[in-house]
C-alpha cells in the first residue's frame, strides 16, 4: 500500500464500465516528509477524499474487483482509507 496525497481528479466519459459511479482521483505518492516521490497515480475513490488530503492507496487488483463488483475490471488502484493524522517518529 502507498501513502499518497490527493492532488486532483480526472473526468472521463469514455471509460470501462467498472469505473462508472466512482471518483477517479490523482494520487501523488509522498515520502515521510510529505515531498512528492515519483509520478502521480490514478485511483478510484469510494470514500470521497478531499484535495491535498493524505490517503492509503491499495494496489491489489482482487480487492478492487470486489469493490467495483466486476470480475473483469482492469482497475487496480483503490483508495482504502483517508488519514486523519500522521505522526513521524525518528528512531536513531
Amino acid at each position: 500500500m502507498n501513502y499518497v496525497r490527493i492532488d486532483g481528479t480526472i473526468t472521463a466519459t469514455a471509460c470501462h464500465p467498472s469505473m462508472r459511479g466512482f471518483r477517479t482521483v490523482i494520487c501523488q505518492p509522498i515520502d515521510a516528509t510529505g515531498a512528492p516521490a515519483g509520478d502521480p497515480i490514478l485511483a478510484i475513490d469510494p470514500h470521497g477524499a478531499a484535495l491535498h488530503q493524505r490517503a492509503i492507496l491499495s494496489t491489489d487488483g482482487s480487492t478492487t474487483r470486489q469493490v467495483v463488483r466486476d470480475p473483469r475490471s482492469p482497475l487496480r488502484n483503490l483508495i482504502i482509507g483517508i488519514a486523519d493524522a500522521e505522526k513521524l517518529e525518528r528512531r536513531n
Binding site: G8, I10, T11, A12, C15, H16, L51, R72, R76
Partner: peptide, 27 residues
C-alpha cells in the same frame, strides 16, 4: 489486471481503461 477484461486468456499487460476529458490537477 490489464488482461482481466478479456473473455479468453489474452497476452496483454497494458489496457486503456479511459479517455480523459479533463484533468483537474492542483498540487
Amino acid at each position: 489486471e490489464a488482461s482481466a477484461p478479456f473473455p479468453i486468456d489474452a497476452p496483454v499487460d497494458a489496457y486503456i481503461a479511459c479517455i480523459v476529458d479533463q484533468i483537474d490537477y492542483h498540487p
